[in-house]
C-alpha cells in the first residue's frame, strides 16, 4: 500500500534537514503506529506525504499502490485515497461543514471519473456517519471547525475520513487535546473503518491511544529516522521507560 524509501526532507525556507532517511512499508489492511519524542519528524512525515508546501524532498521516494505520491498535488493524493487527519484541524469561517464535505466528496469523485453523489444520497450518508460519531445536525450546519471544541474537531476529522473512504489514513496526533471519553469515541470511529483494504498510520506520543486502536506494527522515530520497529509491545516499553533507553541503544 504505502512504500516510503530512504525519504530525506528539509525545510524549504531554512537549510534544516528534518527527515534523514525514513523507510517504511505498510501493507493493505495494516495498522502501523509511529511514536517518538517531540521534534523527531513525525508531523513532517505526515505533511510531506499529504503534500503540504514548505518542504523539499532531497532524496528518497514515497508511493501509494505504486504511484509516486511526491509528484502529485495534494488534491490528487486525496483522490488516490490518501487522508491526513490533522493534529490541528483548520477553522474555515464562511464554509458550512456540509458544503465542505459534499464539495470534497464530489471533487474526489470527479477526479476519479466517478459520477457526483446526489443531494439526497449525500444527506443520507452524512447523517448515518455523523450519528455514529455523535455529531449532531447543528455541528454539520456550522462553519467548518469554527467554535468546535477540541473533541468536536477530532470527531469531525474522523467524519471526513468516514465520508471520503480513503485507503491510506494518516492520523497525526489525533489523541492530542482529547479527554478519555472523546478518545474512546474517536477510536471507535477509526476502528469501525478498519478493513482488509484500508491501512492506517497512527502518529502519537502516547501508548494509551494504541490501547484503543491496536496497531500491528510500532515504529520509533527519532531525529528524522525510524530507529526501531517492533510489535505492540514496543509501545508499552516506551510508555514504561521513555525514549531515553531506545535512543541510547542506537547511539
Amino acid at each position: 500500500m504505502l512504500e516510503i524509501k530512504n525519504l530525506h526532507v528539509k525545510l524549504e525556507e531554512e537549510d534544516k534537514q528534518i527527515l534523514k532517511g525514513v523507510t517504511l512499508s505498510i501493507g493493505a489492511g495494516e495498522v502501523h503506529a509511529i511514536m517518538g519524542p517531540n521534534g523527531s519528524g513525525k508531523s513532517t512525515l505526515s505533511y510531506v506525504l499529504s503534500g503540504r508546501d514548505g518542504y523539499t524532498v532531497t532524496d528518497g521516494s514515497a508511493t501509494l499502490d505504486g504511484a509516486d505520491l511526491l509528484e502529485m498535488d495534494p488534491e490528487l493524493r486525496a483522490a488516490q485515497g490518501l487522508f491526513l487527519a490533522f493534529q490541528y484541524p483548520v477553522e474555515i469561517p464562511g464554509v458550512g461543514n456540509m458544503t465542505f464535505l459534499r464539495t470534497a466528496l464530489n471533487a474526489q469523485r470527479k477526479t476519479r471519473g466517478e459520477p457526483e453523489i446526489s443531494a439526497g444520497d449525500f444527506l443520507k450518508l452524512v447523517r448515518e456517519k455523523a450519528k455514529n460519531l455523535k455529531i449532531d445536525a447543528e455541528m454539520l450546519k456550522r462553519p467548518v471547525n469554527v467554535g468546535f471544541s477540541g473533541g468536536e474537531k477530532k470527531r469531525n476529522e474522523i467524519l471526513q475520513m468516514a465520508m471520503l473512504e480513503p485507503k491510506m489514513c494518516i492520523l497525526d496526533e489525533t489523541d492530542s487535546g482529547l479527554d478519555v471519553d472523546a478518545m474512546k469515541l474517536v477510536s471507535e470511529g477509526v476502528n469501525a473503518l478498519r478493513s482488509a483494504g484500508r491501512s492506517f498510520l497512527v502518529i502519537t506520543h502516547y501508548q494509551r491511544l494504541l490501547d484503543h486502536i491496536k496497531p500491528d506494527v510500532v515504529h520509533i522515530m527519532a531525529a528524522g529516522r525510524i530507529i526501531k520497529t517492533g510489535g505492540p509491545e514496543l509501545a508499552l516499553e516506551v510508555e514504561n521507560n521513555g525514549y531515553a533507553d531506545l535512543l541510547a541503544e542506537v547511539k
Binding site: 503534500g51 503540504r52 488534491e75 474555515i92 464539495t103 471533487a107 474526489q108 477526479t111
Partner: peptide
C-alpha cells in the same frame, strides 16, 4: 491546504475561500 488535502482542487478551493 486543508481543502486540497480533502481532494478539492486548488482553483475550486480558492473559490470556496473567496466565497467564504
Amino acid at each position: 491546504f486543508y481543502l486540497r488535502s480533502r481532494g478539492v482542487p486548488l482553483r475550486a478551493a480558492q473559490s470556496l475561500l473567496i466565497l467564504a
